[in-house]
Design a protein around this nucleic acid. Structure first.
Lengths: 235, 235
DNA sequence: GCCCACATACTTGCATACAAGTATTCGGAG
DNA sequence: CTCCGAATACTTGTATGCAAGTATGTGGGC
């Protein structure tokens, strides 16, 4: 029947929009946690969050359940909801996931990148240098994500980036905290340039290796962060 | 203070348990979808599911939201919830994710596997042959998962398996459907043996290559399934 | 016979009410 | 002063009620 086919089309068109309140709440809470505006270990109250965000407990709960999947909060029945403390195992897991997924993606990206794609990537790095010059950490963080996301998109598997992101909550808190140290930012930009050069020259092996090395740098910041914020960590 | 440290411990102990109704509903619904007991394209009613499972709409909703993250259902506001039709892009994405994650995991597993680990893996393959001999597809499917999960666990990053699974909903429907064909099962078992041999000999490169080749076999079944169930697929 | 308009019955999204259970705190006894 | 117990004020989990919106079926007009 023709109707069923029409319905299918209208469905996929509308599903893309998604819900409004639920998605908004999830994004707001996730940002607050990753930016450590909500401190690791802090207790969260569903009712208080509902009041502050101007919605009822229902969308708050649905967002918290998603955040639990991300291991960013721990929900204990009849007791409370807590921002997860940063876990070394979770960092290690996220690092493994990122290297595997983004490494595989950049390998494909290196074989497929067209000149205009590379120009777009160059532009992103230029913006990173700008943000660094202006000491605008939030903007740098944004364009850092943007670069990695673009590389995944180029591979034809944008889902690699979304998955990597959802798995990288603990790691991203380290990223954000490490960006308060200018030395890290400077080195990050140079490493981005190395990755991009390998992509430009269509060298998949080299690109993957450079990216994996680059990703390892985030982990190297852990001891510094652990020293300055010991209470943010587990056990 | 000592209290806060004690609290932390009790929290992590209890968080492991998790909720009962919500988790149960999610598992039941996911199994129903992946086994195509719920047909791709089928419309689901929150109220009907609530009645059938003996709970209210709330846990049903939370489970459906998780399934939407898995791309297994499409929720259209004020219209209805539908079991996603199998999407070629989703299959391709899942394949990419599985190869990247499990490939990286088996590489590590090959370097770390101790004799007793390998014995355990051998035992799983033996059970697969048993299930094959008894034509018990569900049991074979279970031990297939068990083998892949064990390999990921061996790498020290069990999370690779959970992520891979959550991303593989569309692919798993193909897996289940392809297992109705005995020829596929037989070949799968042999390929498992090849992977395991490489792990036994501590050859990471070879193990990853064999696993990636093995994973590709699932995709090769797509045209067959598409011919026998054209209405299960998108557009 | 065909087509258009309206009412109806459904859907999900959100808000609220109730139930079960825990930590804390306040009061009293020793 | 110390310690024990019960009541209280919270927490999350679940159930239900209401609002907004869409598809469908029915009845009337042409």
């Amino acid at each position: 029947m023709a109707t069923s086919r029409d319905m299918r089309i209208s469905i996929s068109e509308r599903a893309a929009g998604g819900a409004r309140a639920r998605g908004r709440v999830y994004t707001v809470l996730r940002d607050a946690i990753v930016s450590t505006e909500f401190h690791p270990g802090q207790r969260l109250s569903e009712s208080e969050l509902a009041e502050r965000l101007g919605v009822s407990r229902t969308p708050i709960r649905e967002a918290l359940v998603r955040l639990r999947d991300d291991r960013l909060v721990e929900i204990v029945p009849q007791l409370g909801t807590y921002v997860s403390r940063i876990s070394r195992q979770a960092i290690d897991d996220a690092q493994f996931i990122r290297e595997a997924l983004e490494g595989a993606a950049v390998r494909v990206a290196a074989t497929r990148a067209r000149p205009e794609d590379i120009a777009a990537l160059d532009a992103i790095i230029a913006r990173q240098r700008e943000a660094f010059r202006d000491s605008d950490i939030d903007r740098f963080y944004f364009f850092d994500d943007e670069l990695h996301r673009s590389l995944c998109d180029l591979s034809g598997h944008g889902v690699a980036w979304s998955l990597s992101q959802r798995a990288s909550g603990h790691l991203n808190r380290i990223r954000r905290l490490s960006m308060t140290l200018p030395a890290y930012i400077d080195e990050m930009i140079e490493e981005h340039a190395v990755v991009l050069d390998a992509v430009r020259r269509h060298e998949p092996e080299e690109a993957e290796h450079a990216l994996r090395e680059h990703l390892k740098m985030v982990v190297s910041a852990v001891p510094d962060i652990e020293r300055s914020h010991p209470d943010y960590f587990e056990s």
